[in-house]
Nucleic acid binder design. Structure first.
Length: 431
DNA sequence: TCTGGGGTCCTAGGACCC
DNA sequence: TCTGGGGTCCTAGGACCC
């Protein structure tokens, strides 16, 4: 059996931790750049505020109902996520069973094969209660024979919080049937907008229960090949999406951002790309890897002075490195060379980013014919920079090419304090 | 005026090799 | 007139996830 634990309205719940006055009030959290709404409390959902809705379209509604609006505060969410995950690992004896897979910032799968069936309900309730007690974050728990089905259970638990107590265990055929009949195919984990439409319009399949009864060969043909076959098997309770190793390394690392406002000059774009590259290189070093290739991309939207329309043009350039490296200075040099080769004067740039590929473990670096020494001469320096930036303050030490002006920097006008990760922003009681 | 960011997996097709 | 077979590696593109 598998459990999925999912934090309820995670970002909003984090914001509420230091704002108890908002406990029963509608709260939303915005994406980077304060662009759109990416987390909502139940109260906000009830007001008809949609997931992913652009802020400028929702402003009137937010104001009318006095909704608390926050820019995203990833320092806070990342730290709270760690606390929740640590709690789960503790409660499940993860050190012994290696049964916790952190799936995203607010979700974790837990393999429960070592627990007897009759213990599941109580176990799930304990997870919910202790996580809340220790971190203040409310969670929902779904338990079922496969990951896809545990997601089904979790969704139903969350939909009817009062009735379910945010816990649902699907451990018998009747419960599974009821749950699947109540689940629209579009709400299945792994069925996106495209497939949902196809299933409904072309085949008249509307519920998870109907989909479960389709033949695997049909799924192989019309539902994304092997992916579709797995979906059918998972719905039938045959687990085939296995637990992932927590030590697995990313195969691709990217950093990209919309610019706070459109950018026209080469200097600003180079600063932005240099900053993104530093950030990506840090991620690379954190997982003890080196990158073998780098891609830079920019997104332009029309030309200077033209009237507004959203018609983004992606341009990207790829460069295989002579030998894999995690050295920020080499990566930045390469990235900036690519930027120069793709820049066009008079173009309005709205977004940019970089992508590191060909990732290998740092200790497997091979020398090549043309570079006598392996390209890690700066490893000590990189480590020092990472340590300083981690413990003191972001970007205390940075490469000059990252610039100081930052007129491409994103907007975050309503960010709360980083109360759990910055001494200077500790929570204070007023009076 | 304004619409996120960072990933994964799979498949097809081209380049190249022996 | 006839023109192999089997493989790897890489990239692009599509679909999906939170």
């Amino acid at each position: 059996m598998y459990a999925i634990i999912d934090c309820n309205s995670f970002y909003c719940s984090c914001e509420r931790l230091f704002r108890p006055d908002l406990r029963h009030k509608p709260v939303v959290v915005l994406s980077n750049n304060d662009g759109c709404i990416i987390s909502r409390t139940d109260e906000a959902k009830k007001l008809g505020i949609d997931m992913g809705a652009p802020l400028f379209e929702s402003r009137a509604l937010l104001k009318q109902h006095d909704v608390a609006v926050f820019s995203s505060n990833y320092h806070l969410y990342g730290d709270m996520s760690m606390r929740v995950m640590d709690t789960l690992r503790f409660l499940t004896d993860d050190a012994i069973y290696h049964c916790v897979e952190v799936y995203s910032v607010d979700e974790a799968f837990i393999n429960l094969d070592h627990l007897p069936a009759e213990a599941l309900q109580g176990f799930a309730e304990r997870l919910r209660d202790v996580v809340f007690m220790w971190t203040g974050i409310p969670v929902s728990v779904g338990i079922a024979p496969s990951k896809v089905l545990s997601k089904v259970a979790n969704r139903l638990a969350k939909k009817d919080k009062k009735g379910s107590g945010c816990v649902m265990v699907l451990d018998n055929e009747d419960a599974l049937q009821l749950a699947m009949e109540a689940t629209d195919v579009s709400d299945l984990w792994g069925i996106g907008r495209r497939y949902a439409r196809k299933l409904k319009e072309d085949y008249g399949i509307n519920t998870a229960w109907q989909l479960k009864h389709m033949p695997q060969e049909w799924a192989r043909k019309y539902l994304g090949g092997i992916v579709g076959v797995r979906m059918i098997r998972e719905l039938n309770g045959h687990s085939c999406i296995l637990m992932r190793d927590p030590l697995e390394k990313k195969k691709m690392i990217s950093t990209s951002r919309m610019f706070g406002k459109p950018v026209f000059d080469l200097i600003s774009i180079k600063e932005a790309i240099a900053t993104f590259t530093s950030r990506a290189a840090e991620k690379l070093r954190r997982q003890h890897s080196a990158a073998g290739s780098i891609s830079v991309f920019v997104v332009s939207n029309g030309i200077s002075g033209a009237s507004y329309s959203y018609d983004p043009q992606y341009i990207n350039r790829y460069f295989p490195l002579m030998s894999p490296t995690a050295d920020t200075s080499i990566l930045i040099r390469t990235a900036l060379f690519l930027v120069e080769s793709m820049y066009r004067e008079g173009t309005k740039y709205v977004k940019g980013g970089i992508l590191l590929g060909g990732i290998v473990p740092e200790n497997s670096l091979q020398g090549d014919l043309f570079s006598s020494a392996i390209n890690n001469g700066n490893q000590g320096l990189m480590k020092t920079i990472d340590n300083i930036n981690f413990s003191m303050r972001d970007d205390m030490v940075k490469f000059a090419s990252s610039g100081l002006s930052r007129n491409w920097k994103m907007r975050q006008e309503m960010r709360s304090k980083r109360s759990t990760t910055r001494w200077g922003e500790l929570f204070e009681l007023s009076n």
